[in-house]
Design a protein around this nucleic acid. Structure first.
Lengths: 342, 342
DNA sequence: TGGTACTGTCGAAGCGCTTCGACTGTCAAC
DNA sequence: GTTGACAGTCGAAGCGCTTCGACAGTACCA
């Protein structure tokens, strides 16, 4: 193991000089700088993370709290996680993985033991138990998702209210009068998960504003559940012609169910999804959708956090604007037919 | 921030005594021990991780290298990751997340900077570039998956050869004569990913041993690709009556395609999957399957690793035995029909 | 020509912990 | 009564780094 002292000796300078060359915190002559860098390379020096953390009280590690709960769609979470790790690395930070089941305790632990400098928290509920803790603990943090009371916290998320409104507008523009929101499993609503609640809120607002008729229902992930839910929806509203889906795992089954029930997409039923673009593209017909830009959000979250660590004042809340991409699954509302087929 | 010195003062002992009480590395009188614990609680003391790591050259952090590659099934990986984190916590360790795209470099980095004590590597290829590095780097490691040459390394995985053989045997026992392996996307084979290769190997061995006729094909994840692949399979082998699937995301589409092609499961076609139990249970009909016990493997991996850190000699390779659960999707082979239906 | 202001470098202190060796009693054994 | 062994505790050193203050040297201005 080669230490900073070895490098200093090799380069014929003091250890502190090596430190300053590496950190750039004081000006060093070009010549010395070069010599030090040469020695670093020659010896293959790599600073010891613990020593550095101890001396500087900065570990260069971020914690990422990922949810492991019922009804969460795993691939999307993974995209967030990946973006967080990749971006953190770009700013010379590593990422410690905390599972949400360690809950608030875990946050306290990593902060008090100075394991991490800051934390990224995913899957925020409207009344999240971690929120008061985060406010109290002076550990810089960013939430991916908005609690009801975001006072004093930095949050970022897709504008789900806007996403739902965009969907309603799109359908209304196409002439649909009776539409439904096929949501997440009910457990997600019961937990008061922010994104689900806000989507519902946006849906309601859109429906009111456009004067169309809107139904809402949660939906579990199993194939059978999808069938039942859709049948129920059609029983409640036989003239239903538009569906907004916020529930990635049921997208495949939903399209099957519609086929099975003899409803063509988009001729008889327009389907709009709030999901990752590749999922939308992967369906047949390709789904019109509002993308969940997980990568962008994850990246921006880390950048805001790093900014905070550098003393920048971040915006309190960042809503990433929703964008709708029209593909093949949405079209003009079918004309209501009476029994006049000949 | 309360330090060990504060605790010592509060308890009226030396700092080293506090340290020994906490680590148990020297015997301490019951009375002192109690006093120290009382002070720890009273002050809310939590050892500083960096200081501890620096002094003891043990960070109590494990690295987890997760794959982010084409064709990997995300939910299963997540199960591994979760099991690893949960188990690590049980042994008082944390988990640092490394993405595979930092590759070998990442491993070198975390080792040289003494960020982690050991590493869990997932998604091993037969000729994995990280394998020689892991052998060279003296960083305790465990691989989830087997490279071709596992000499000097500790590996653990499901016995995929056995899993495939079990599937072939099950079908052969039911009288099936012509079966096929519907595998992972071809990118996974091209990478020479161990689990895919070994499954294929077991399939071939089983087919030979039982004297049945076996086809093999990779399959991409899109719905259309599944349709094409199955049609091709049926064109090549019209009398096909058994399918072994190792490709979680296509399971849903596959069942649809079979329905669409008018093949009833299991009356006309038996389907066996190698997948997580909840996925198998979630289908209609419920799939007969060989489970991928991600949780168990992840847990055992960490336990082996912690053992290694404590100086225990681990077994070189651990193959978790495959187990087949017969559910509703497999049944006796249909009798071959000529055109004698009336 | 002296004062001022940098620039570039060094040495030492200190981050909070572990661990080694040393010291003090106690108690059993001879 | 020594002697040894051992349990229980302490102090000091040191892990590898950052950072602060000091200081020499150079440059510039009055």
């Amino acid at each position: 193991m080669v230490t900073i002292g070895d490098v200093a000796r090799h380069a014929g300078v003091a250890a502190s000089t090596v430190s300053y060359v590496l950190s750039g915190k004081r000006s060093i002559s070009a010549e010395t700088r070069q010599r030090v860098h040469a020695s670093v390379d020659a010896l293959g020096y790599r600073p010891n993370a613990s020593a550095r953390a101890l001396a500087s009280s900065r570990s260069n590690v971020l914690a990422l709290v990922i949810p492991l709960r019922a009804g969460m769609h795993v691939p999307v979470m993974m995209q967030f996680a990946t973006a967080v790790v990749t971006t953190a690395r770009r700013y010379d930070h590593d990422v410690l993985l905390l599972t949400a089941d360690e809950g608030a305790t875990g946050l306290e632990r990593v902060q008090q033991s100075a394991l991490v400098d800051a934390v990224v928290v995913m899957d925020i509920e409207l009344y999240d138990e971690r929120v008061p803790l985060l406010r109290a603990l002076d550990l810089p943090s960013i939430l991916i998702g908005f609690p009801l009371d975001a006072e004093g916290l930095t949050c970022i998320d897709l504008d789900f209210v806007g996403a739902a409104e965009l969907c309603v507008d799109h359908l209304a523009d196409l002439g649909h009068k009776r539409i439904a929101l096929l949501g997440t499993p009910s457990a997600v609503y019961e937990r008061q998960t922010g994104f689900a609640q806000r989507t519902r809120e946006g849906f309601r607002a859109g429906v009111d504003r456009r004067g169309v008729h809107g139904l809402e229902t949660p939906c579990e992930a199993a194939h059978e559940a999808v069938l039942e839910t859709v049948e129920q929806l059609l029983a409640d509203e036989p003239e239903l012609t538009g569906l907004v889906v916020q529930n990635e795992p049921i997208i495949g089954p939903l399209l099957d169910v519609l086929r099975q029930l003899g409803r063509r997409v988009p001729e008889d039923m327009s389907v709009l999804a709030i999901c990752a673009d590749d999922v939308a593209e992967g369906q047949r017909p390709r789904l019109s959708s509002v993308a969940i830009p997980a990568e962008q959000i994850g990246q921006q979250a880390v950048e805001l956090l790093i900014g905070k660590l550098d003393g920048l004042a971040p915006p309190a809340g960042t809503l990433v604007p929703a964008e709708l991409t029209a593909r093949e699954s949405s079209g003009p509302a079918p004309q209501p037919v009476r029994s006049t087929t000949a």
